[in-house]
């Protein structure tokens, strides 16, 4: 095991895969000379040169499309969005080209492209830079959507993403980049579609992913002091979604709270709730609750922003409700 920060884990995955396979390249805004807007790609230009670490102008639809086109004819592009918010201007490329080329060509084409970058809230960056974009993308067949919470998964899942034959959307978090964790040494690949049990417990299942896993773990500690033992599930992979692990946990705890960033209407949380009620209806001792971003655009004001983003106390409150400690 080696301790490293989340951003170093992402960088190591990119570097190892570029080392292994000449078809892999990194393209995006400020990934090269600037060394990455969040320093994820620091040193990669020096190591791999301008042919493989490519700075772009501000043209998300343009370079997302170039990544898809290059993947379609056999390359393995890693396309960095400075933040996932900017993927909105490339949404058509992801929806209509990346996700559909295989099917509309009758299976002739593959699009092994990875789109990656930080997602969801940062700190006071306002309404246009705080989106949790996964909720738009998980709806689309043809895409895979991955959201790791730890450096180990960040590395192992990005390596898996780069080797995948389908378009993979890989979500990081600005507020996770400096989080440290142990990463296995040597070849480390984490498969998609397998959730991770981040904390074992017996009274209530907390289901989350990305940065919010850490908030759930904080909430679980506080709840333990109150005598409620929570199991925390880190989904890691949003599409495909690991039904088996969440159903097994619910079968043990009979209660669940889903906590994540994103608006309450639809989205990943609604999908998790739908699957649990269909697959494990008889196991439920209480309605499943969701703790989400409030149903408003993100405000700039620091206090209002914290009010809008899901916090540990809201998770604690939801767990107390599903365990009937309060109404």
């Amino acid at each position: 095991m080696k301790s490293m920060r989340f951003r170093e884990a992402v960088r190591e995955a990119i570097a190892e895969e570029m080392e292994r396979d000449d078809r892999v390249f990194l393209m995006g805004e400020e990934v090269g000379q600037y060394q990455g807007a969040y320093k994820v790609s620091e040193g990669l230009l020096e190591r791999f040169g301008e042919r493989r670490v490519i700075d772009t102008p501000i043209t998300e639809a343009g370079f997302a499309g170039i990544g898809i086109g290059a993947a379609m004819v056999g390359l393995r592009p890693i396309i960095e969005f400075m933040t996932w918010n900017f993927s909105a201007v490339a949404f058509d490329q992801i929806l209509n080209n990346a996700a559909k080329l295989r099917q509309m060509s009758g299976g002739q084409l593959s699009v092994p492209v990875v789109f990656r970058g930080p997602n969801a809230s940062a700190r006071q960056v306002g309404s246009q830079h705080s989106h949790a974009m996964e909720h738009f993308y998980v709806n689309v067949p043809g895409l895979k959507v991955i959201a790791p919470a730890t450096p180990a998964d960040a590395k192992g899942m990005l390596k898996t993403a780069i080797r995948d034959e389908d378009p993979v959307l890989y979500l990081e978090s600005e507020t996770l980049y400096s989080v440290k964790g142990d990463v296995p040494e040597g070849e480390h690949l984490v498969p998609f579609g397998k959730a991770r049990i981040a904390r074992e417990g017996t009274d209530c299942t907390l289901i989350s992913y990305s940065r919010m896993v850490h908030v759930c773990l904080d909430a679980a500690e506080a709840l333990a002091a109150k005598g409620i033992d929570c199991e925390v599930i880190d989904l890691r992979s949003l599409r495909p979604l690991d039904e088996e692990t969440i159903v097994a946990s619910l079968t043990k705890t009979h209660r669940a709270v889903v906590a994540y960033e994103g608006w309450p209407y639809g989205g990943v949380g609604a999908e998790v709730v739908d699957r649990l009620q269909r697959l494990a209806f008889d196991e439920l001792d209480a309605p499943i609750l969701r703790v989400t971003t409030m149903d408003v655009p993100m405000p700039y004001n620091a206090k209002l922003e914290q009010l809008v983003i899901p916090q540990a106390h809201r998770i604690i409150d939801a767990v107390e409700r599903v365990t009937y400690r309060r109404t």
């Binding site: 170039i66 990544g67 086109g69 379609m72 004819v73 058509d92 080209n97 002739q108």
Partner: peptide, 28 residues
């Protein structure tokens, strides 16, 4: 219409969106 063997890469219904895609083929 797609014909990978003859390097005919579509056949695109969203006009303009196929231009970056083609640039990607040229990039490769």
């Amino acid at each position: 219409f797609f014909d990978a063997e003859n390097r005919m890469y579509g056949g695109h219904g969203i006009i303009g969106a196929h231009i970056p895609l083609a640039a990607g083929v040229a990039f490769a």
